[in-house]
Amino acid sequence: MANSLKDKATGPQPEVTLDDDRDPIVVVDGLHIVYRVYGGGGGKGNAASALMRVVKREGRPQMKEVHAVKGVSFVAYRGDAIGVIGTNGSGKSTLLKAIAGLLPPARGAVYTAGQPSLLGVNAALMKDLTGSRNIILGCLAMGMTPEETREKYDEIVKFADLKPGFIDYPMNTYSSGMGARLRFAIAAARTHDVLLIDEALATGDAKFKRRSKAKIDELRKDAGAVFLVAHNLDVIEETCNRVIWLDDGRMRMDGDPDTVLGAYTEATGK
């Protein structure tokens, strides 16, 4: 049985096809995200003007609302690895944060099975602690027992493949690539129902990219879903079985990598 839905009101967004033979894991239903940014700059920025603002019951100055995601709907199934592409500011990261439950929908909803985990490029875990402490605390925080943590420890160290000795240095001494590797290694130590990767692999070298692709395939086989935001289209092409193209907060295309990447490359004039 297959139903189709069409979002008429927000223009030509692709139809959502429901496939009852497969097990859905993320359902995004007409999602709108509006978030507020508090601007630096502008205004007088002194104590007197700030006080006047409070007295007059005005909002904080330069509060802007950004309508970042505009009525996106799709269904992700178990075993999907979905690449999300689009130009800068097209709402890719916002969409991932919304799926992770970190941004409240202004309208619509996100339904998931289990708790999604979001790996961002700047997500240092605990900067002032050593790599090995981060591994142990990360595993415990994800709900593993101390025994499981000990079992997984060597695997994580091996996967992160840091330079010798670095595991005992605080994480704020790591290069961005090393930090990204360790974070990914920790997050991948547990099976996730939904793993959201926001450019977190971009700083890795070629060797690490190969291994992280193998890990993502493994996670997919464990019947989870992986979302990948990347500007490097090769990575998406190699890793994903489905690609979503966002343009100015709207979904432009949703389909197999060849078709969508082809259209995207053509449209952006690469």
Partner: peptide, 8 residues
Amino acid sequence: IAEPPRLN
């Protein structure tokens, strides 16, 4: 903000 997706 538009209406939620309608059936079609």
